[in-house]
Design a protein around this nucleic acid. Structure first.
Length: 647
DNA sequence: GGCTCTTCAAGTTC
DNA sequence: CGAACTTGAAGAGC
């Protein structure tokens, strides 16, 4: 947010004049996607709209200027990780040596060959080999066993990751006998996101921009498929699992990144980043298997190869994790019959063997925590919690009396908070811990359904002055509408696939939001139900009218005044808040006198997943030429896509 | 050894 | 609740 918002550091806490608490000035020079008066009538429908929201970026209809309400500021520097510890196998001096699990080893197919890949023991697959320098993982100084050699990592991915699926493009027949062209849909996405000529280098190794673009493309495609699936008449059976479908379509086109496996961090993914689907982990290379919880790769050790674990997904949730956020007790994989659920002993092979090898090699293992959270589609969110080392392993008997492998993973010190932050926030919310630095528990004074705290844990400032909280938009001038608006008659709420609903028709025949309230598309203009509609207040098409859904806090930043962030995770397309305050004539020239019920609102939706406590930022948009040299201010948002200035 | 093809294992999502 | 679904490793074959 903007720097230089006034301060009122003299007022003691508790005696604050709330009318002077914040000097959050309206977005004076905001250049949002306000339709121009003549453009308004030509955008999508000749009919005026009962309620209009402005969501994230285009494609923009003619007469509409682009405006990215939110870009996530991401200024936390990734720790380089791999604090290469001297080789005591990763154990502290007080920690007992691990129980050897070798007795559980599955007998190799060929007795002379190493484990893992019996027939290809000394072969480096793929088009090239990467040799990892002696980076401290090697324990050859201390041990002369089979683990004591430098590691040659085979690049097993490069050659195989651009395989194209054969066959005709998939089309789904609609009830009208027309075929829905999924291929064209995907190609459109690739064009829009400039992913058509996705090169091998970015596929093999990513960066923040690539990761962000792929996740954005995935989620929009997934949401679009969900929307199509809901309106089955248009594309029946197009995707029962839109997450899998969207990811498969992208991967078939070779659109993925970090497909070369690596130990340690993945370029472009930062500690604390959140994901809502397993396939997202796959697409960005954080954790390749679509189902399995352990990802591993083959490393070459002189003439032999052996598997080492590179990442795990711990899907436990809060309750299973104990009090220590930095320790995970992880169960091995296998031991369950797929068909009937019958249990048997786990075997020391595949992921289990890789974890055991990683214990001895003391290599970093990425950890993704599955966290129970209502914001996730199935109540689960994945958080990248950084690097861990495996410290111990042992065998337990489960209830059926079968052997289960257990691995103790301990977080590498010095990394930014991730999972532990979630736990803290949970405690703030349930009252078992207090948020430090709170100046006002709720600066809205109850105007919102959820409190918005005012927090300063940076310095002594007690809050910006000259601020009155307004929950909705004020108009200096009414909004122009060429014709009277027509509401819907959906008494039970607007339903997907209802071709008669006028509100759906205004959104190209679809409801604008999913059943979870996630915006389906990044269109520049959304039509919501309004005053003249018969649908109830909880209608899906009234998303932005229901108030904020996440716990927000206004907080003091270190270098740019006061900012806004959320205690809750926000998924891409999720509604954050409505722009509230005065719309000033000079800044917009868009709103005009009207006698209809059309209201234009500005609503902020997340462009990408936003982890808790990450500052919310937005893009002020493109500078009007006449303003290019006037009122220019340096932007401090810190985003990789920052324009540098706003006006 | 190198390549392709098939089989199998793993768990999430709605 | 259980059907539907995926990728990538492992194995077989040439």
């Amino acid at each position: 947010m903007e720097q230089g918002l006034g301060s009122d550091s003299n007022a003691p806490p508790g005696s604050i004049d709330k009318s002077r608490v914040l000097d959050v000035r309206p977005l004076r020079s905001l250049v949002p996607v306000f339709p121009s008066p003549q453009g308004m009538s030509s955008i999508s429908t000749p009919q005026p709209t009962p309620f209009v929201c402005v969501p994230p970026s285009g494609p923009f209809p003619s007469g509409v200027q682009p405006f990215y309400p939110f870009l996530v500021q991401n200024d936390s520097q990734r720790t380089t990780g791999g604090q290469n510890q001297p080789n005591n196998f990763g154990f502290g001096s007080n920690i007992p040596a691990p129980v050897p699990l070798n007795s559980f080893r599955t007998p190799p197919a060929h007795a002379n060959r190493g484990p893992g890949r019996p027939k290809k023991a000394s072969k480096a697959r793929g088009s090239g080999s990467i040799v990892i320098e002696d980076d401290g993982y090697s324990d050859s100084q201390n041990h002369s066993d089979q683990y004591g050699f430098s590691m040659h990592v085979t690049d097993a991915e490069v050659a195989s990751n651009s395989v194209k699926r054969r066959g005709r493009p998939r089309k789904r027949r609609t009830e009208n006998g027309e075929e829905f062209d999924v291929e064209s849909l995907v190609n459109n996405f690739l064009t829009v996101f400039k992913l058509k000529e996705f090169d091998d280098f970015r596929r093999s190794s990513g960066d923040k921009d690539t990761v962000g673009t792929i996740l954005l493309a995935f989620d929009l495609l997934r949401r679009r498929l969900t929307q199509l699936e809901e309106a089955k008449d248009l594309a029946p059976g197009i995707a029962r699992r839109p997450d899998l479908k969207a990811a498969t379509l992208l991967m078939t086109k070779g659109v993925r990144t970090n497909s070369t496996k690596r130990i340690g961090h993945v370029p472009g993914v930062e500690i604390g980043d959140i994901f809502f689907f397993r396939m997202e982990l796959c697409l960005v290379g954080l954790h390749a298997p679509s189902m399995a919880g352990i990802d591993y790769m083959s490393v070459k050790i002189t003439m032999d190869e052996e598997p080492v674990a590179v990442s795990i997904v711990s899907s436990g949730g809060y309750d299973d994790d104990g009090d220590d956020c930095d320790v995970i007790i992880y169960s091995g994989q296998g031991g369950v019959q797929r068909r009937d659920g019958q249990m048997f002993d786990q075997k020391l092979e595949r992921g289990n063997l890789a974890l055991e090898k990683s214990l001895h090699r003391a290599n970093d293992v990425r950890v993704v925590r599955g966290i129970k959270d209502i914001a996730g589609s199935n109540g689960k969110i994945y958080v990248y919690d950084g690097l861990y080392k495996i410290q111990e392993s042992w065998v337990e008997k489960n209830k059926s009396g079968c052997n289960v492998f257990k691995y103790k993973l301990v977080r590498v010190p010095g990394q930014p908070e991730a999972f532990s932050l979630w736990k803290s926030i949970q405690q703030w919310k349930d009252g078992t811990a207090t948020r430090t630095g709170i100046i006002l528990p709720d600066l809205t004074s109850g105007a919102e359904s959820l409190p918005v705290a005012l927090v300063n844990d940076v310095d002594g400032e007690k809050g910006p002055a000259h601020f009155t909280y307004v929950p909705s938009l004020k108009y200096s001038q009414p909004f122009s509408a060429p014709k009277p608006s027509t509401g819907c008659h959906c008494l039970g709420g607007c339903q997907p696939g209802d071709t008669h609903c006028p509100c759906s028709q205004r959104n190209d025949g679809f409801l604008p939001y999913s059943s979870l309230g996630v915006l389906f598309t990044n269109k520049s203009l959304i039509h919501e139900c309004g005053l003249t509609c018969a649908c109830p207040p909880n209608c899906r098409s009234r998303m932005s009218q229901a108030g904020i859904k996440v716990r927000l806090e206004v907080f003091k930043t270190k270098n740019r005044g006061w900012g806004l962030r959320s205690w809750d995770p926000i998924r891409a397309g999720g509604f954050i808040c409505e722009y509230a305050g005065d719309i000033i004539k000079a800044s917009t020239a868009v709103l005009r006198e009207s006698n209809s019920d059309v209201f234009l609102h500005i609503a902020f939706f997340a462009i990408r997943h936003i982890p808790p406590m990450q500052e919310l930022t937005y893009d002020y948009g493109i500078v009007p030429p006449e303003k290019a040299d006037k009122g220019k201010k340096k932007c401090l948002c810190g985003s990789v896509k920052c324009r540098g200035f706003f006006y």
